[in-house]
Design a protein around this nucleic acid. Structure first.
Lengths: 124, 124
DNA sequence: CCGTATCCCAATAGATACTG
DNA sequence: CAGTATCTATTGGGATACGG
């Protein structure tokens, strides 16, 4: 099990009243998006890949002082599973692996920007 | 300590390279917003208060089967501290307390909607 | 009705060591 | 260089009991 699930699961069952309120079935959808970026280093990774066309594993690691190999790989895998980033293994020796944002990953940026704007304007 | 902080803290120090990438100092800001809604029952609560002008504690509890008194109160406190909701104690006997979204809370909705739209369009 | 206090468990993240 | 495997520490969430 290399999955990081957090507590951001949809409240209980499927047709729980809890999961389907707001405009419509909002909670579950919002939760799904938040899941994707929930993790200590997900945003730092995403923003880096947003700024650069692509980055090697070691570049990412150097850019984020404090992250461990384990957490880096783990979060990269999760972001990959979420289809936000793409992994490319060049099959060279020594190993060369690069990551880049997918179209989906780029489509997420407006959401993050909205969250950022909100923080700037309304946060204490 | 009644604070629920989760791991969504900004990566390490203050002027860490990690915290300030993207368009500008995005990570920290986005993180701050995500903090506010990070918690098992935060979204369910917010969406309920979005649908209703105000709700009593017991109403919220009834509407969210599975939530415990403890978690309800805890999350309500945190949302209050984040200025997303307002608490009103009528000082009656038996107790009567009502919660409602603040203006800030309403301002958050577009962000949640953006996240929801993203999920609908791009999630597997 | 509304809130607090405990105890417990599950899930994450960090540190460290090891492999191709 | 890139990734895996362990072990540990922390913490958020659930259950339960109690109090104003």
């Amino acid at each position: 099990m290399t999955e990081t699930s957090t507590h951001f699961k949809v409240p209980v069952g499927s047709s729980e009243g809890a999961a389907c309120l707001g405009p419509d079935g909002s909670v579950a959808h919002v939760t799904r998006t938040l899941q994707m970026i929930n993790g200590r280093w997900k945003l730092p990774i995403l923003f880096r890949l947003y700024a650069e066309p692509s980055m090697r594993t070691s570049q990412l690691k150097r850019d984020m002082p404090g992250i461990s190999q384990k957490m880096l790989t783990q979060h990269l895998r999760e972001l990959e599973r979420s289809r936000l980033i793409e992994r490319r293994d060049f099959g060279e020796q020594p190993p060369r692996v690069e990551y880049k944002l997918t179209e989906v990953g780029r489509a997420l940026m407006p959401v993050l920007t909205a969250a950022k704007e909100f923080s700037i304007r309304h946060a204490a």
